[in-house]
Nucleic acid binder design. Structure first.
Lengths: 221, 221
DNA sequence: CCGCCAATCTACTCGCGAGTAGGTTAGTCT
DNA sequence: AGACTAACCTACTCGCGAGTAGATTGGCGG
């Protein structure tokens, strides 16, 4: 067994490649057990290297975790940035953003788990970084909301309510992504359209049979 | 210092009281550091007893955490159950539920932090319990949504979409509660009404100046 | 006023996992 | 071929914190 693995395993790979492998393994392991319950030994095992390699290349456990967070956050934000259309109506911007988000989560469950569930609970540096990422998303969404026009009916605190609503929306998306993990037999597009209907029209319209649907984009993304 | 504390401290209290004190301390400590970073020594110190007492009364660290989760979950659910009106229109039910929820969170930040942020990240038993509590909430909300009428426009998966929308709503409320922790200068009622407007009317109506507002309940709860 | 037990403490053990010291190959360049 | 270095491993140390053994003290029934 150990013999076989040793023979099968490609050896003496360049540092660059090993770092990738190790980070991949770390995301996997952290997503499964969380930061604290994950052991460096397991990361090393999953990566197919021995523990000192992990330390040599990625540093301490915290540094490794930070590397995971940063890489995955980067990937998520970029995926959304690439998917969103800046040159269309606010509702379509929201729609494209949501779609990209759910698509990414669908393709990268581990990444999402690490970013959403684990990073916050570790506290300190990481929570900070994650909070900032969330804050940026919320800002963007808030801008969308505000750009849609002045909200009447929410009192004088229009700016704050915009931010709060954005926070609520982002949270709804996150929560829906979590719910999705238990109901994988639904496509990302369907999920996105449900949420889109909820936040754009609200239950009030939904129960009256209204529905929002995307206009065709000139070049289908 | 130690002398003073020793003299000031009320000693030889009945078990019942000590258990309460310890559990209170544990909620506090777990909410500050999370399950793993919290030490039993600190719990004991905050509770004003020594470590063996904690073990004698509440068992292992995991059992202690479980006790916290269960007690706080119970309190939260009961607070909501007491606040919600079962004999009114769906929108008013939702409104009263949201209000109770935010009110509880406002009065019990530590409880909320433990339940929301920490419990999920520990995994195993606890995540299970928390998930079940969330699931129950989601079910209730889903029932509300479905009771409001048949949703057209969301395709054939009406039942599933109801559950998903409920998950999204619960997530939105949770997220908004978190956001609130950073913006405490807002009342629970205002917060609840913002969310109510969002999910009931949606952005689409909000930007057009529509607003939802609660009808007066016959006896003001 | 005395013994008895529950309440409580001090002062340990012990395992687990982060982090490391130092040796061992395998490519590579001349 | 031979040596030089980067890749890589085995096999440790060591601190931290969960959990415990056993002594101690205060209050209550007799």
């Amino acid at each position: 067994m150990t013999e076989n693995e040793r023979k099968r395993r490609v050896r003496r790979l360049p540092r660059e490649v090993r770092e990738r492998q190790i980070t991949d393994a770390a995301v996997e392991v952290f997503s499964r057990h969380g930061f604290h319950n994950a052991s460096m030994d397991e990361v090393a095992e999953v990566a197919g290297v021995s523990k000192p390699m992990v330390y040599a290349y990625l540093g301490s456990k915290e540094e490794l975790f930070a590397a995971c967070i940063q890489r995955e956050a980067q990937r998520l934000l970029q995926a959304i940035a690439e998917g969103v259309r800046g040159d269309v109506e606010p509702d379509m911007q929201l729609w494209t953003g949501l779609r990209s988000f759910f698509h990414f989560v669908g393709q990268n469950r581990s990444s999402w788990t690490v970013l959403h569930r684990q990073a916050l609970s570790v506290g300190g540096e990481f929570a900070e970084e994650i909070s900032q990422m969330r804050a940026r998303s919320i800002e963007l969404v808030a801008a969308l909301v505000v750009a849609s026009g002045t909200r009447k009916g929410v009192g004088a605190q229009a700016e704050k309510s915009g931010e709060a609503l954005a926070a609520a929306l982002v949270g709804a998306a996150e929560s829906l992504a979590d719910w999705w993990l238990d109901h994988p037999d639904i496509s990302d597009d369907v999920l996105a359209s449900w949420l889109m209907n909820l936040v754009w029209l609200g239950f009030g319209d939904l129960v009256e049979g209204e529905a929002w649907s995307p206009k065709d984009l000139t070049p289908p993304a």
